[in-house]
Design a protein around this nucleic acid. Structure first.
Lengths: 120, 120
DNA sequence: GCCCTGGATCGACGACTGTCAAGGTAGAGA
DNA sequence: TCTCTACCTTGACAGTCGTCGATCCAGGGC
């Protein structure tokens, strides 16, 4: 349940907002990996379900029932979100719990708009 | 050079931030279309080049030289960004100029973070 | 009229992505 | 230990995406 392969935070932190100066190739590659992870309706709903769940975390069993998809497919989408660093997961007993990573969302938000409130 | 097929603004405006309540299926589909448009390094750099260009707009001829890609490919990526409503373009004489749509970027930013400054 | 230049569209190809069925692993309880 | 549940991984398939060459359209200058 480790999060190996996720985008290193410092790459994003160094990014200026889109409209201030052009992105370098490396910055664009790292950022696009995050946006691509959000570019699927199922993953967007999964992230939303996790982030808005009480306690800020959700068990996989809370998520599978919502969609008309098989377990492996949900698991695949969760892995994509995890590798992008947008969520993190840990096993507690029988169940696996996922939690959103607000820092990653704030960094993405800050890239889109120069004057977004990042420190909130 | 019309922007037909782009995401209607009201669909995004009605979206609560991800972490406040779960996205509906329709909201997720529309939002994922925007994020998917940003999920490619070339398109991310194109948007950044346009948004940060002096005057807030850039001619296609300013963009093609930056990448190691053919004209049709650049044109394709610009079309994807245009259909997502992230940029708009108009022909002035021989050249076509593209301009970023700050409102679309702000809406996306607001979805990611509940307390982002949207009205700025 | 003709030709040149800047861009867009079309058609095709390889690569990647989303999905599922089958099988595997970890923890809990008998 | 054996079994059940919860979840992940693998392998395979269809559909989508990024890219290019070829072609087409619109404006400007001759």
């Amino acid at each position: 349940m480790s999060n190996q392969g996720q985008v290193p935070a410092e790459v994003i932190d160094c990014c200026s907002p889109l409209a201030r100066e052009p992105l370098s190739g490396a910055q664009a590659v790292e950022l696009s990996r995050l946006f691509k992870a959000l570019g699927d309706p199922v993953r967007l709903r999964l992230l939303s379900l996790i982030a808005s769940h009480e306690g800020g975390e959700a068990c996989v069993c809370d998520l599978t029932g919502v969609f008309d998809l098989t377990g492996p497919t949900i698991s695949h989408h969760l892995k994509v979100l995890r590798q992008a660093g947008l969520i993190s997961g840990d096993r507690r007993g029988t169940w696996v719990y996922y939690r959103a990573e607000p820092d990653a969302l704030r960094r993405l938000s800050a890239v889109l708009v120069p004057d977004a409130v990042v420190g909130a």
